[in-house]
Design a protein around this nucleic acid. Sequence first.
RNA 1: GUCCCCGUAGCUCAAUUGGAUAGAGCGUUGGCCUCCGGAGCCAAAGGUUGCGUGUUCGAAUCACGCCGGGGAUACCA
Length: 651
Amino acid sequence: MSILAELRRRFADALRPLAGEPGELLDMVRASQDPRFGDYQANCAMPLAGRLKRPSKDVAADIVSRLKVDDLCDPPAIAGPGFVNLRVRDDVLRSRLHAALRDERLGIQPIERPRTFVIDYSAPNVAKPMHVGHIRSTVIGDSLYRVLKFLGHRVVGDNHVGDWGTQFGMIIFGYKRFLDRAAYESQKVEELARLYRLVNQLVEYHEAKANLPELQAAVAGHEKALRDFDALANQSPEAKKKAGKDRKRLGQRQLEARDEVESARRRIAIVENDATLLKLANEHPDIGRQVLRETAKLHAGDAENRRLWEEFLPACLAELDRVYRRMKVSFDHTLGESFYHERLAGVVEGLLKKGLARETDGAIGVFLEGHETPMLIRKQDGAFLYATSDLATIQHRIDAWKPDVILYVVDHRQGLHFEQLFAVARLWGYRDVDLKHVSFGTVLGKDGRPFKTREGGTVELKALLDEAVEKALGIVKQSDAGLTEEEQRDVAGIVGLGALKYADLSHNRTSDYVFDYDKMLSMTGNTATYMQYAYVRVRGIFRKGNVDIDALRSSGAEIVLSNPVERALALSILQFAEALETVVEDFRPNYLTAYLFDSLARCYTTFFENCPVLQAETESLRASRLLLCDLTARTLKLGLELLGIDVAERM
RNA sequence: GUCCCCGUAGCUCAAUUGGAUAGAGCGUUGGCCUCCGGAGCCAAAGGUUGCGUGUUCGAAUCACGCCGGGGAUACCA
């Protein structure tokens, strides 16, 4: 058990006579931010004083008098309005460090009451290449999977791939009309991707063409509205002032309309600037409807389309697998939309029967209190929606795995969808499972707009990985570690991928962040490169000193904490477990990166600057410091591993 | 129209969910280092946490109202 958890347990005992079940008061026992306030502090006297109507210093004294921590801490101090400050005894630190030395898990016990988590992450469309938008879900989900599992929970990773939607209608249609047989024979996935892009372009072209007049009319309408508005508002300065906000809103709407016209024009231009595309477009004016028909036929069990789908799918999945292997991400299950296809009708019927869903405007939806619009589960044409499939998925996951929690690692724009989905699931009867949308922000380019190629297209994940690795290779080549070319390539892979993942994980998941290769690969600052280099440097000490660290570890050599710098490092090492606990509290991997950088690496740097290791004053001090180095290296390595990031021994 | 998220140093981001003097990195200025891989180190400057009013021992964090940005808003996923 971590020091913090142990302290909380002691505080629970001390608080119970004063406050009954302490509950959230225990959250107020925490690591101190400032060493002047000790290692840990308890802030619960102040709120309790309010409840008991007693002076907070008295309450603090009362708590301290009941608190039994003398086997863990020096005598507690009371400061300010009633903060209880605790300093862990050095012998406790030392014995915990020795326990960590001997243990693969660095002394961290699996938790006593494990829960079952299903994590839904990555979830790409299998027919399209993965792009920048998939990074966050994949990387955050994978890290949460690793941390939860390490802490001792049961975890099921499920990749809910899109393998049943319109994109397959597009490929099937493309296959039937536009296939390049030779390309298909040699490069199946590339040819399918080409077909997808081609058909999609043609569909978008016709859509844009059809919508353009209406969109232009909308712009004209907004412009006229603006002019009328101005004319009216200009009649008196007072009216103008009052109308400022409305005017702004009108202006925004007009800009949006212009953007839509712009984007429609772009889509049209792509096709019209290319004679081959234009010819195809003209030959298939009805392509949008045709694609839907192919999709509907697939869903209805049409033999030909079903056969094609079965032919395409393995290749698409294999391609995905290649990317995941490269990213070192894995799943326990890949149950895509197609897996749930046959359950969807039953879901709708069930909800109708329970009186939760009803017909509305030809479709079927569930109306929810507090929501203007219902959640539709069947379209007018009888087709099902992703809400339907998500409900079937909840049902299956609960039947199959009996989870306590299901996490959806999905971007924040789907917040409303999940709000409705979870509400329906509860009405449906699933009240014991905790459904949680682990949402995240957008990856932005340096211009602050969503990350795109210079031409405005989406950035493929593969290209992103390639570039990160290539830039990493440039850095590795500058090193004087004397690596062979092959080793350099291996290390560049580790560094490039690590940089990409770490950049994502070190940002607060709820905010957007700016994607910047130079920053993420920087040797200084909160980056994977810095952490990996830190690891290499520590390990370098063992090499340089010809130290057999495994032997030293089991030699019975003692750790001594001869100065505050060593002590601070020791405490930081032991707080790794606490960092992992905070990650899991609200599913925020950036708490782990913050720990590694702001606490562990910082303490180690200070130690490294101030405490000679190989040239320590005495042999026993040398051994002790080597053991501290060993614990630091192993904590770095394990911490990075839980983020899905590897280390190299030299770089 | 309604709902959700965001606004923190010049820039990129934190802040353990209400705790003590808001922290890092980059950039800027000034010093220092013959030393385990130069990961340089130390110091300084830089903040009315968008604005205002509340809540309380205590607010970047909670509530309400503004201002600014982004997103969502029934038959795509």
